[in-house]
Amino acid sequence: MGYNFFTSILFLFFSFTTTTPKNTKAMASNETNAMTETESVYNTIKSHSATMPAFACFTKAMKGFKALKAQGKIKKDLLTVIDFSQSSNTKRLWIIDMATQTVLYNTLVAHGRNSGDEFANAFSNDNSSNQSSLGFYATGEIYNGKHGQSLRLDGLEQGINSNARSRGVVVHAADYVSENFIQMHHRLGRSQGCPALPTNLTKEVIDLIKDRSCLFIYHPTQKYFAKSALAS
């Protein structure tokens, strides 16, 4: 009986020691394959486009985009990427057609007035914070508000941007989002937390990305990655 018990213990020990490395190798292989796919898509888009988001930003965007598409939370093959690590004086918004792997738009976009001056460095999900919220959104419906035609956004990350709709964080036009404003003030104008766009582009952008496309706002802050299941 003692012999059988000892044999069973040895069997269990060797089972765990042999299966764990296999699982680890499988996980590493999946991560490598995902990175290879991301690099391939990124390089293809880059070859078609004058400008692109940084690879670190795009990697997070594509990971969340694929997850949300699989979950049915977004419907379109459009990915809007906003990189708030960049100066507001640069064109830091991209709309990418993931089906054709091309950049359709690259333009200026504002951040919240309490998120920073030229650079955004503070983010919040709180009402009346006047700060931008990071993370993944699904675009909603068009409505006419105080800024004219605007597009509602639904934050898809609890505790990160989930109050977007109740806060009134929307895509809208603003005359302070322009090269002329930058020349006069040495930085872009700021919103109350909305990703505001140039007046000459807003209508066509809204018409394109409305109705459940993916919008991702990026910044390399560890507080976000620690909370986000989509980007981490």
Results as ranks from 00 to 15, higher is better:
Thr17Ser: 14
Thr32Val: 13
His147Tyr: 10
Gly193Trp: 01
Asn4Ala: 15
Ser178Pro: 02
Asn114Val: 03
Thr20His: 11
Arg190Trp: 05
Ala50Val: 14
Phe65Gln: 08
Ala229Val: 13
Ser166Ala: 13
Ser88Tyr: 00
Phe13Gln: 10
Gln192Arg: 11
Tyr224Gln: 01
Gln222Pro: 05
Tyr42Thr: 04
Phe58Asn: 00
Val171Tyr: 03
His219Phe: 11
Leu104Asp: 01
Lys69Gly: 08
Ala34Met: 07
Ile142Ala: 08
Ser124Phe: 02
Arg187Phe: 01
Thr90His: 04
Ala54Met: 12
His111Met: 03
Cys57Asp: 07
Thr19Gln: 13
Gln101Ala: 04
Tyr3Leu: 15
His186Cys: 10
Tyr176Gly: 01
Leu197Ala: 07
Lys223Ala: 15
Cys214His: 02
Asn43His: 09
Ser29Val: 12
Gln183Arg: 13
Lys46Pro: 06
Gly159Phe: 01
Ser40Tyr: 06
Thr18Glu: 11
Met98Ser: 04
Pro195Cys: 07
Glu179Tyr: 04
His186Gln: 11
Thr90Ser: 11
Asp97Ile: 01
Asp126His: 10
Ser47Gly: 14
Ser40Asp: 10
Ser129Cys: 11
Thr20Lys: 13
Ala231Leu: 02
Ile82Asp: 08
Asn89Ile: 06
Val169Pro: 02
Val81Met: 08
Lys210Glu: 05
Lys91Met: 10
Asp117Gln: 09
Tyr218Asn: 04
Ile182Ser: 03
Ser162Phe: 01
Met184Cys: 11
Lys73Leu: 12
Glu39His: 11
Thr51Phe: 06
Gly145Cys: 04
Thr19Asp: 10
Met184His: 11
Cys194Pro: 02
Leu78His: 06
Val171Gly: 04
Thr24Phe: 10
Met62Phe: 14
Lys22Ala: 15
His172Thr: 02
Ala173Tyr: 00
Phe119Pro: 01
Asn43Cys: 07
Phe123Ala: 09
Thr102Tyr: 01
Ser162Lys: 05
Asp117Cys: 04
Asp126Ala: 15
Ala196Asp: 04
Arg187Glu: 09
Ile217Glu: 03
Tyr143Phe: 14
Asn121Asp: 14
Gly135Thr: 06
Leu12Ile: 15
Val109Met: 03
Ser115Met: 01
Tyr137Phe: 10
Gly140Met: 06
Ala99Gln: 12
Phe13Asp: 12
Ser213Ile: 05
Phe216His: 00
Cys194Arg: 00
Thr24Pro: 05
Val109Gly: 00
Lys25Thr: 14
Ala70Cys: 07
Ala138Val: 06
